[in-house]
């Protein structure tokens, strides 16, 4: 960790040494800021990592969407991924529970360890992985079933409850944790698609925590919600951070600042800077990070 910390952005780098350092002409950014591959500024590593990710590269066919990223995600931390659209933060997030598997042309390289076990091991059971690493999506996606069945879906699949009363308890607990119990308890049999957007998203969170995952990945969970619903979800994230490791991708820098312990800034498939959130937002070390958080591009 210490060696990475001392690295500063290489300003006088030889142009053309690597094809990734050649930046498209239309890219609006300070002349001096050059991204050097695998040279992340800040504190990318941790002493007690939940995820240990080294030299991760993701390809879509011929395109290298993630370029040699190394990062630790600590146990029970909330880490926010920020960066301009198309920078690879969602792609990177989807590597953590192998949701990229369903895309034919997508290939992942590098070492991705969850509790020191390789996520992309060919013998790895994806079902077990996803049961441990839950996910909440950008657009609320409740199943067109009842509220109860939505929450009970995961526990039923994984056989977590033997009796109806156990299942009832799991559903109630999950809805309580997601702050939805009071609103939903009288209409558990109503279809979930009839709820408001904010309620649907909290239902999706309840659905994810119903199978007691260790990690929850959130891909822009509030981008389809109004400010009040967003505030509720953020509150929820703060509460959940006590018992879960949370990785959240967000376009809102305020949201990253409000909910996360650490913030990672992505740019064109590179991980440019990772640091404690307040440090990233008050004293960014890399010029690109500074440009982004001060709104010069994005």
């Amino acid at each position: 960790m210490s060696t990475m910390n001392t690295l500063k952005p290489a300003v006088d780098k030889e142009v053309g040494a690597s094809r990734d350092t050649v930046v498209p002409a239309h890219e609006e950014r300070p002349e001096s800021a050059v991204i050097e591959e695998a040279k992340t500024v800040g504190k990318p590593f941790s002493d007690d990592p939940k995820f240990k990710l080294r030299n991760v590269e993701v390809f879509y066919g011929q395109d290298r969407a993630i370029k040699n990223i190394s990062l630790d995600i600590a146990r029970n931390e909330v880490i926010a991924f920020i960066g301009p659209s198309g920078c690879g933060k969602s792609t990177f997030l989807r590597c953590l529970n192998r949701m990229n598997d369903s895309i034919d042309i997508c290939r992942v390289r590098g070492s991705l360890l969850l509790d020191d076990q390789n996520i992309y091991d060919s013998k790895r059971d994806v079902v077990e992985l996803r049961a441990r690493v839950g996910m909440v999506f950008q657009k609320p996606n409740p199943f067109p079933k009842s509220i109860y069945d939505n929450v009970a879906y995961g526990p039923r699949i994984h056989g977590l409850a033997n009796r109806k009363s156990d299942l009832d308890d799991i559903v109630e607990n999950s809805l309580r944790k997601a702050g939805l119990w009071d609103e939903a308890k009288d209409r558990l049999d109503a279809t979930a698609t009839g709820m408001s957007g904010g309620q649907q998203q909290r239902l999706c969170i309840a659905r994810a925590i119903a199978i007691s995952p260790e990690v929850i990945l959130m891909d822009e969970p509030c981008s389809a919600l109004d400010p009040i619903a967003t505030a509720k979800v953020e509150e929820l994230i703060a509460e959940m951070s006590e018992s879960y490791t949370i990785v959240i991708v967000t376009h809102s820098m305020q949201q990253a600042a409000r909910v996360s312990h650490r913030t990672a800034y992505f740019h064109l498939g590179h991980l440019v800077e990772v640091n404690e959130t307040n440090k990233v937002f008050t004293a960014p070390e890399h010029e690109l990070t500074e440009s982004y958080i001060t709104g010069r591009f994005g």
């Binding site: 994806v126 079902v127 996803r130 999506f137 699949i157 999706c204 199978i211």
Partner: peptide, 10 residues
Amino acid sequence: LRDGSLALGA
């Protein structure tokens, strides 16, 4: 919907 179900380990 597919993603939601797969992400729950189905």
